[in-house]
């Protein structure tokens, strides 16, 4: 828990530093306030969750990847799809644990900025779904008086749904290259309620013991521009 908290603080600080520095780099692309444009696609961003690479440092038992596609409608509304894969391989003295699965999230972002239309400071929501399985082997249970027992738990599959609300920032640091972070609140709606063998990590959601999870993600995006003035 403590480790996770510092991870969030670390992510938040780094992304704050980078994103704040990126704002206002290209003043030529600001548009006049108050002009109403018809909804049209201004660009498609492809993103990679750079925070997942911090697993090498903070969660070496996890290998995970996450990418996103967002469709920019007039720099105001963004249709977003995020998807990823996660694999856990945890080996302890008294058990080994394996888990792997996929997740997909779909939703919208809304840009609150009016004066900086190519950048983003806004809110969003997602609905997430994760399909994964886990198992445990070489489980050793010791007892003071009884002999040590060894057992295993067979592969079990889960289907988890959750809702996610976010507040975040994306700044264009180079032409069509964006960096951004989001603070997330995730609320589990259903699935993986196994009290006896609670999953170590739900791909895309996090630990399964809480119904509400806080998180931070940070992304690097490349935008293919359309109709850009």
């Amino acid at each position: 828990m403590k480790k996770e908290l510092f991870r969030y603080i670390f992510s938040f600080l780094i992304l704050s530093i980078i994103s704040i520095n990126s704002f206002g780099q290209d003043e030529n692309i600001y548009v006049e306030e108050g002009i109403k444009e018809p909804l049209q696609i201004k660009g498609v961003k492809f993103g990679v969750n750079a925070g997942r690479f911090s697993d090498y440092l903070f969660k070496p038992e996890r290998i995970s990847y996450e990418g996103s596609i967002d469709i920019n409608l007039c720099n105001k509304y963004f249709g977003v799809i995020e998807a990823g894969y996660s694999e856990i391989s945890l080996t302890k003295d008294n058990y080994s644990y394996i888990s792997d699965g996929y997740f997909i999230k779909a939703g919208m972002d809304y840009n609150l900025l009016k004066a900086y239309p190519t950048d983003f400071l806004g809110i969003g929501f997602r609905f997430g779904n994760s399909v994964f399985s886990h198992s445990a082997n070489d489980i050793i249970i010791e007892s003071e008086h009884w002999s040590t027992t060894q057992t295993s738990i067979e592969n079990t599959s889960y289907n988890v749904y959750w809702f996610e609300a976010s507040f975040g920032v994306k700044g264009e640091v180079l032409k069509n290259i964006y960096l951004g972070w989001s603070a997330l609140v995730k609320i589990k709606l259903s699935g993986a309620n196994d009290e006896n063998f609670s999953p170590y990590d739900i791909p895309g959601f996090g630990g399964s013991s809480e119904l509400v999870k806080l998180g931070v993600t940070y992304y690097i995006y490349y935008q293919i521009p359309f109709n850009r003035k």
């Binding site: 945890l90 302890k92 008294n94 445990a136 489980i139 006896n196 609670s198 170590y200």
Partner: peptide, 14 residues
């Protein structure tokens, strides 16, 4: 008996 995953640090118990 039933086996329980107590925590990642503790492992499993009955």
């Amino acid at each position: 008996k039933e086996i329980i995953f107590l925590s990642p640090e503790c492992g499993f118990v009955y």
